[in-house]
Design a protein around this nucleic acid. Structure first.
Lengths: 354, 354
DNA sequence: TTCAGCTCTGTGAACGTTAACACGCGCGCC
DNA sequence: GGCGCGCGTGTTAACGTTCACAGAGCTGAA
């Protein structure tokens, strides 16, 4: 078994620490003080061009890399942001994560991620704790449930937090999200405009604000048009749930239009309809929400409400940076709403003539 | 414009630095030296129980949190792992990311992520650089292309790297991936066993090892069975590409079975077949690869090869940790292969009787 | 000429932790 | 009784940066 410290030779053995190149080394080679090197590194203006160049050359020739840990120790900022992730294997959250990360990189930040299995207060707080311990400069929570905002309110006040995607009126952290109600209105109105007497809804889980807001938008549009408001069935965000809801709806001959809380539910509804021998859109129209990558290739191609997840990520980062630059102790309740867009494909059409 | 340093009052102003509680404070309260506090924190055995308890109490009452930056500075390890992510909005990579992150958390590591837009050497190296600068202890690259391994070989040798998902025989980093060839064999043999004379293949991009390995598995199975090997068409990994390939294949009456390089391609193929008036599986059988979340709700439910992405993540973390514990300078070429499983649903069946 | 005020540079002290060593004590062993 | 040894603890010195100053040299106005 090879020894970890091979001090076999007579000498006291080389130190296990490889001695990495530091500012002092660069300084010595460039014939300046370490402080001058630091100034060059931080783009301090008061450095003679000629000096700066010498330092730069020295850095290059020594392949110097600044030690961020030391920097963090003294400046107390790490150029790292924390993300609290939830269900990040799903397309939406994964896209937000990516959007945030790319935006953060452009802004010179690294991103650390802390996933939570559930959005209860304890787990979120524990995630915040892990992140603070690693001294992140701010936190973005992918937070589709209200409980996260409550938890965020208990985070150390010095830590700036922003919630993204979902959650309604926030008491604690500033929030950026899609205007779910507007999206639902778009979808519902589109179906009404096509001539459907009313629109049924295959909803998401009842305790998710995203789901609730979509229901609100759908219902209010129906009210405004004087259409009857059918009862809603709740389910999970997946195709299985959509299939179950769709099978039930397929039995009702009055159902000519179904607005689904997301594209996966729509996929399940589509299959249920197919199994029941109903044609889409001739017999029943279906509209989704999200505009997932391949929803244009469902059978038939899905009319849906497009969300710009990447933009969501960018905006949330921008908001966080803004709050970090001008910290106000209780963050002003602030909500950025992005407007979704309807993408019309072929799963929606006029109702059948009876 | 509000000044950042409001030293407006007569006094020299309170220091902007809030003075956080440090080991010394805990030590003072507990009546010990800071070193003893450190020992307690690191579970050093040589601390009297009574002392340890006093320190623990002091830490709690002061709400002490150790400063990881300082620790990293001296120990040169950060308890942080880096992930190089690619296309992490897709289900596969997103799941791996999640698998790695949860496993890392259980092992006491934080995870930082560096996404790349393309897998060329420059970008990967740049990502490695960003990660090393933030002093990660190791790197896992979600690396479905060979170029990544080449890039990894140029990373600082002190940095342990592992590649996950894809890439064939690796010269540089140890790799863990699915046995793509075995999966393809499973799918192809399944179709052959159903009685199809041969199996067509809707492939992925030609320069991806995952794609190549699946082609190999498919082709070798056909050879072994003495079946004709149809030419392969290449495409991207999405439904649009599948639709294009499927449309072409639908014109050929000899095509009775199609093995698709992934489920998204299969989705496109399914629609193309539907448009061409071919029934699945009565006229043509279709098999996918990946077992994406909703592929059981395609029309018809898709027979496919299941990959356990989460397990992939866990295994890659385990491998990385192992290599970190026993560093050998050129890492031994090592490849862990996970066996995929065939999930039979209804998109595959016996060929039509002519 | 002097002196204020700028530009450029250097010196010393943090920052909060762990590593290395030293010390005192009690124990068992010759 | 001396010696070695392990245990529990403290003291001091890193680790590699940035910050707060100080000082040298130059310019320009009084």
């Amino acid at each position: 078994m090879a020894s970890k410290k091979p001090a076999a030779d007579g000498l006291p053995a080389a130190p296990a620490r490889p001695r990495l190149t530091v500012m002092r080394d660069v300084a010595k080679l460039a014939g300046v003080s370490h402080q001058t090197v630091s100034r060059v590194l931080n783009n301090h203006p008061n450095v003679r061009d000629e000096t700066r160049q010498r330092v730069l050359d020295a850095m290059r020739s020594l392949n110097y890399r600044r030690n961020l840990a030391a920097r963090t120790l003294v400046t107390r900022q790490s150029d790292t942001l924390g993300i609290i992730g939830f269900e990040t294997t799903l397309f939406g959250p994964a896209s937000m994560l990516y959007g945030i990360e790319s935006a953060a990189r452009d802004a010179g930040y690294m991103v650390s991620i802390a996933s939570v299995r559930d959005l209860d207060r304890r787990q979120v707080l524990e995630a915040v704790d892990r992140l603070t311990q690693h001294s992140v400069d701010g936190v973005i929570a992918i937070a589709p449930k209200q409980s996260v905002n409550h938890a965020l309110a208990q985070a150390p006040p010095s830590l700036q937090c922003v919630a993204v995607g979902g959650a309604g009126e926030s008491d604690a952290a500033p929030t950026v999200s899609i205007d779910n109600a507007a999206g639902a209105r778009l979808a519902t109105q589109h179906l009404l405009d096509l001539g459907h007497a009313t629109v049924h809804h295959a909803a998401g889980p009842p305790d998710w604000p995203e789901s609730a807001e979509r229901i609100d938008g759908w219902r209010s549009t129906l009210y405004a048009a004087g259409a009857v408001v059918p009862p809603v069935e709740h389910g999970w965000w997946d195709a299985e749930s959509g299939h179950a809801q769709g099978s039930a709806l397929a039995k009702d001959p009055n159902v000519t239009a179904i607005f689904c809380a997301n594209d996966r539910i729509a996929l399940g509804v589509l299959r249920a309809l197919h199994e029941a021998g109903k044609r889409v859109p001739e017999d029943v129209s279906v509209v989704g929400f999200d505009d997932m990558p391949d929803s244009g290739f469902f059978v038939p191609p899905l009319t849906t409400v497009h969300q710009d997840f990447a933009e969501l990520g960018r905006r949330s980062l921008a908001l966080l940076l803004e709050h970090m630059a001008a910290p106000t102790d209780p963050p002003p309740p602030h909500r950025v709403l992005l407007t979704p867009q309807l993408v019309i494909r072929t799963s929606s059409g006029p109702p059948p003539h009876p």
